[in-house]
Amino acid sequence: MIRLKKYRTPFVYLIIVVLLLVSIRLTGFERPTLSQGEAFIRNLLAPLQSGVMVIGQKANNFLSQIANYAEISDENERLAEEVARLTAENNLLTEYKQENARLRKLLGLQDLIGTQFSLTAARVTARDLENLHQTLIINKGSEDGIRKDMPVINEQGLIGRIINVTDRTSEVLLILDREGAVGAMVQQTRVPGVVEGLGPGSDQLQMIHINVDAPIGVNQVIITSGYGGIFPKGLRIGYVKEIIPEANGLMKRAVIQPFVDFDRLEEILVVTGVVDS
């Protein structure tokens, strides 16, 4: 009896460890919905997180401005000149755009033009809790028409996709996450591949499964290929920074610098649908 009592504590720990390992295994995959308990905790914390995040963003912006005052002043001057130049260029491009639309219609490529995304704007209210995952929480949920697997973008490019939705919040899996892989291709040469994160702590991506002979070079732009059905074709991801041959000699991979500055995300757009105009 005494001997049994001695082993009771280790036995309890062992059972807890086994149960937790089973739970990790069962919940490692994406689930269609969150449990009520999880949704409740998220909805409860959301307003608090939102308030603290706004304070954090303001403090961060203020400190950055102080640190970069001289730089900002020069940049402002330079940007004013650039705005004037771009305004003139923009007028010219509007003409080209109209001409382009007319020509495409003539060629019968109506399925390629006139499509646009219907978007819902949202604010980032919280970031990932741990270093292992790359996610963020936004202040729009199922009540605003957000659904699982909807792509998330901003004016810079692709951010990720929705993986969990509650009534008033949604969780976005960033493309930086190792589980956030995206079907992609090189914009200029149309070489296809898969873009995935480099792992915890890295802010770069890599494009894998590229044939060693495929025409791909540094500074070329990578866009979504539309394969896989989640991300529409043509969303900007990043540009090629480096090409690294694989050890097997048959394939190579490209290190991609994303267009999106993932450390400074404040407002984002959820693509709620692709509509024909």
Binding site: S23, G28, L34, E130, H133
Partner: peptide
């Protein structure tokens, strides 16, 4: 529960 993935890790 807040992370919602690999629950128990």
């Amino acid at each position: 529960l807040l992370v919602g993935k690999y629950i128990g890790l």
